[in-house]
Simulated assay, not measured.
Amino acid sequence: MTGSQAAGRLFAALIAVTAWLAVVLRAWIVTSFVMAQGRTALDGLVTVFSYFTLQANVILAIVATACALRGEADGFLTRPSTRAAVTVYIVIVGVIYAVLLAGLRQLTGLAVPVDIALHRVVPVLFTLYWLIFVPKGRLAWRDPLAWLAFPALYVVYSLIYGALTGRYLYPFSNVPVLGYPRALANAALILLAFYGLGLALVALDRALAGSAIRARQ
Rank of each mutant, 00 (worst) to 15 (best):
Y129F: 15
G71N: 11
V24P: 05
Q37F: 03
L60E: 02
A22K: 06
L110I: 15
V121S: 02
R70K: 15
L197P: 01
Y89N: 01
N186C: 04
W28H: 12
A6E: 11
V177D: 12
L208E: 07
A111H: 09
M35A: 13
V121F: 02
L192Q: 00
R214C: 07
Y180C: 09
A163T: 12
A187I: 02
Y180A: 15
V30H: 05
Y154V: 07
T82F: 05
S173R: 00
Q37T: 13
L178I: 09
C67V: 15
L69P: 05
A16C: 10
T108Y: 10
G166V: 02
Q217L: 11
C67A: 15
L21N: 09
L208S: 07
G162E: 06
F194K: 06
F11M: 09
D205A: 07
T31P: 05
F194V: 00
L110P: 08
V23K: 04
L118R: 04
G166F: 02
G210F: 04
R167M: 11
I62G: 03
I59Y: 08
F172W: 11
V121D: 02
D205P: 03
N57K: 08
L10V: 15
A84D: 06
V93F: 00
I92F: 00
D143H: 14
A183T: 08
D205N: 07
L204T: 12
L54N: 14
L77K: 06
A22W: 04
R105W: 12
A163P: 07
A140N: 13
A7W: 08
A111G: 11
I29D: 11
L199G: 08
L25G: 10
T127S: 13
L148I: 08
R105G: 09
A102W: 10
V23I: 15
A146T: 12
T78I: 11
T165Q: 03
A207S: 11
A207W: 12
A19S: 15
A13T: 09
F49H: 14
V48Q: 14
R120G: 12
I132Q: 05
L101D: 11
I132E: 02
F49S: 15
C67D: 04
T53Y: 04
I96A: 09
A207F: 09
L118Y: 06
Y161G: 04
K136H: 14
F33K: 12
L184K: 07
L199Y: 02
A152V: 11
A84V: 05
L131A: 14
A193G: 12
S4K: 14
R9Q: 14
A117I: 07
A13C: 14
A102E: 14
P123H: 03
Q217I: 13
V58T: 14
V156F: 13
V91P: 03
L77G: 06
L139Y: 04
Y161I: 05
